[in-house]
Amino acid sequence: MRSRFLAPTLLLVPAAAVAQAEDPARATVQALDDGLIAIMKSGKAGGVAGRSALIAPIVDRTFDLPLMTRLVVGPSWNTIAPADQTALVTAFRKMTVGQYARNFDSWSGESFVIAPQVEERAGDKLVRTTLRGSGEPVSISYRLRQNGGRWKIIDVFYKNSISQLATRRADFSAILASGGPKALIAHLDQLATKSGD
């Protein structure tokens, strides 16, 4: 008896969910934004270490950190010893997690608005978001690429124009050119120790 009434509803619900355009790329960004709001709300209590522990698994799920590391390093990646490659990815991950944990340390009503439409080009997707808080809204967009069936973030843009990858590439290039991967790993590790918990 009951199921007869429920059946139409059950049919409608998934249809509505699909109509809401649950683009998998958008879902990835939603997961990151939810995680960021969560660590902001967790506040200063847990310290950088506490917020890092909360956001790290989300960063792992939502970012393609190995690919981002390769893109930042650039073509010289293939000349780097496998052990150093692994160390670079580890350092890059630590840096990404640490940066979120340090910067998203309190919540005063901020929210992320994720644009409903997802743009696509040559296989990559772009998800636009707006961070709303007390001041001017900030545009943050995410570029995603599919890897192993999941859409993962490979670049972050501020104000629709400032690419995090491009900035990091600039930031790393002098050290990479002068000291090679080992110098870069050392600098990144030193940073993690300094700013870490």
Binding site: Y158, A166, S178, H187
Partner: peptide
């Protein structure tokens, strides 16, 4: 408050421009 994470990354003293790259 929230400080949007800068597009840069990471700390430490400035890297001097290396001799090899102009």
């Amino acid at each position: 408050m929230v400080v949007v994470p800068p597009p840069s990354a990471t700390a430490l003293p400035a890297a001097p421009a290396p001799a090899v790259y102009r």
